[in-house]
Computed example of a mutant assay.
Amino acid sequence: MQKLLSLKKGLITGLTMIALALFFFYGLKAPVESKYQYAIYTAYALGIVWSVWSFATTAEPSTSFKEYFSAGFKTFIIVTLLMVIYTAVFYKLNPQILELKISLNNELALKEGNHTPMEIEDNAKQMRSIFIPMMLAITTFMYLFLGALISAVTAGVIIQLKNK
């Protein structure tokens, strides 16, 4: 039963994060990399804590760290999957973000003064080819790392509280 609950909490958390990201980008016209990202990360952390905490309310006193962590893991793995899919679709639907990054990179290269126009154009082509895979890798790593960290800390705190 807990597996299903963690799945639902992961879906709720992930969909909330996606809704927030869409609201900030399209509603508030905030850039992707803005201070509003912290609200999305907060929703992520709260979703994982919610999952581990609700597992703890039904857990036996002898429940191990591994079992608490597993409750968080089941949640953050679903969220990570949703966020990776969202990232791929988002950047495919918003190529202007990539083009802006390329133009900023080109301006920096021109200011340096030690790049030929051909080198700058080759760099732009390379950036276009690796941008989405790079963003997917960054998103995957970041959400897996943060999810594991939040799950481990929450599990440790709950165990300490239950042992008092």
Rank of each mutant, 00 (worst) to 15 (best):
L82K: 07
M127R: 14
T63C: 01
S64W: 00
F73V: 15
Y143G: 06
I12Q: 02
L149N: 09
T63W: 00
T13P: 01
D122V: 15
L28T: 02
K125F: 14
I138D: 03
T58E: 04
L100A: 15
Y68M: 02
A124F: 07
T80M: 08
F25K: 02
F65D: 11
V79R: 04
L104K: 11
L22I: 07
D122N: 15
F90M: 01
W53K: 11
W50E: 06
V84D: 02
T139N: 13
N94H: 08
E33F: 03
T42S: 14
Y41F: 08
I159E: 02
G147C: 12
F55A: 00
I97P: 03
M135G: 05
S54A: 08
I40S: 08
N106C: 12
F25G: 05
K35H: 11
A56V: 01
N106A: 15
F90D: 07
S51M: 10
A43F: 10
K164L: 10
S64G: 12
P95K: 13
I12W: 02
P117M: 12
F131W: 09
L15E: 03
Y86V: 00
L7V: 08
K29D: 10
D122H: 14
L100S: 15
Q37E: 09
P133H: 12
L22V: 11
A19T: 03
N105G: 15
P95N: 07
V84F: 05
A39K: 00
M118C: 09
V32K: 03
P133K: 13
I159Y: 00
K125V: 13
L22D: 10
A43G: 08
Y36L: 07
E121T: 15
I102N: 09
E112N: 13
Y86T: 01
K9H: 09
N163E: 05
A88Y: 14
Y26D: 09
Q37Y: 01
G14S: 06
P133W: 06
V79A: 07
V84A: 05
N163V: 01
E60P: 01
Y91W: 01
S64F: 02
Y44Q: 09
I18Q: 03
I138M: 13
I12Y: 06
A71T: 03
A152N: 11
T140N: 10
S70E: 06
T139C: 14
K92G: 01
M134L: 13
Y143K: 08
K92C: 01
V32I: 04
I132K: 09
K164C: 03
N106T: 14
I102K: 06
K74V: 01
K164V: 12
A59S: 05
L149Y: 10
E60N: 06
G47L: 02
V49G: 07
I120F: 08
A59M: 02
M127F: 14
G156C: 08
Q96Y: 10
K66H: 07
F55R: 00
A88G: 13
T75N: 14
A71M: 04
E99T: 11
I18D: 03
Q37L: 04
N94A: 04
N123T: 15
V89F: 13
M17S: 05
A19H: 03
S151C: 13
I97V: 10
